[in-house]
């Protein structure tokens, strides 16, 4: 059976696309057949983070409108052969995606025996975000330890439990996973940043992972290589743990303790 995972947040710039790319790649590393779809019509970005921007010929909207077949539009990843990317269209027409169109594409992916479809939601709570979450079985809600992001996440959690197909049909609710990103244990210890526990308590849901703030995330985007493939970064390892947990395995949370500065750093700064 194909499981649909939406990566969403409400607020922009919290790490949805970074998470979608790493999550999809991580599932492919585990041998799953995965498609990752960019729902951000008009602002295509997932292709850049996945490093396949020059291979986009047809996009999601082309498939929905019957201008290309799904097979033509799916871009096969160069690193993992069970991983595919479906790019967003650059059209400015907001109504380019329809619920029926999205459903048709998802059904076709199910027929092709995909294990997972990862839907990278646009920011906001408009149509694109609604369509990205509507058919989902799992939701990964990406949140930063920051007031506006936490508040928006609560809003999104509310929408997930009321405005989705599972909710409307009275089926088992979407499995909600809270992913805390850009976490800085040093600032938490200094009392400058909300802690994991704070965010969990405010939102009433426990985290599926905590991704530490890391310079390697920008480096990974620069290179077009999902950060989960960076074995030298804590963020990469934290994403691997998160994928394992989503697949039902237990992994202790890591990288939550402050990094102590050395003597020279404390004296001379840096």
């Amino acid at each position: 059976m194909t499981e649909i995972i939406v990566v969403t947040s409400g607020k922009g710039g919290v790490g949805k696309t970074t998470t979608s790319a790493s999550l999809a790649t991580g599932l492919a590393i585990e041998g799953k057949k995965v498609a990752v779809i960019d729902f951000d019509v008009g602002l295509r970005n997932l292709d850049l983070i996945m490093g396949c921007e020059r291979r986009v010929v047809y996009d999601f909207v082309n498939v929905v409108h019957g201008e290309a077949t799904l097979k033509q539009a799916l871009i096969k990843d160069k690193r993992y052969e069970t991983l595919y990317v479906l790019a967003a269209s650059q059209t400015r027409d907001k109504d380019a995606l329809t619920q029926e169109g999205v459903e048709k594409v998802l059904e076709e992916l199910a027929k092709e025996n995909f294990d997972f479809v990862v839907c990278d939601s646009p920011a906001g709570i408009e149509k694109g975000a609604h369509l990205a979450m509507y058919f989902a079985d799992h939701a990964v809600v990406v949140v930063n330890p920051e007031v506006s992001s936490v508040r928006d996440s609560d809003r999104i959690l509310g929408l997930l439990s009321s405005k989705t197909r599972r909710a409307e049909k009275g089926e088992a609710p979407i499995k909600q996973h809270l992913l805390l990103t850009r976490y800085n244990p040093n600032r938490v210890e200094a009392g400058e940043m909300l802690s994991v526990k704070d965010v969990e308590e405010i939102l009433g849901i426990s985290v599926v992972g905590v991704i530490p703030e890391s310079e390697n995330v920008l480096a990974a985007s620069n290179a077009g290589v999902p950060v989960i493939l960076d074995d030298n970064s804590q963020a990469g390892h934290a994403y691997k743990d998160t994928v394992a947990r989503i697949l039902g395995n237990e992994r202790p949370l890591r990288f939550l303790d402050p990094v102590k500065k050395g003597f020279f750093q404390r004296v001379f700064g840096g």
């Binding site: 508040r151 609560d154 400058e192």
Partner: peptide
Amino acid sequence: PSAGVARERLRIIVAQE
């Protein structure tokens, strides 16, 4: 430390919403 202020403000607004 400002995290405590953030926590309290969020508790109130989230409960209200």
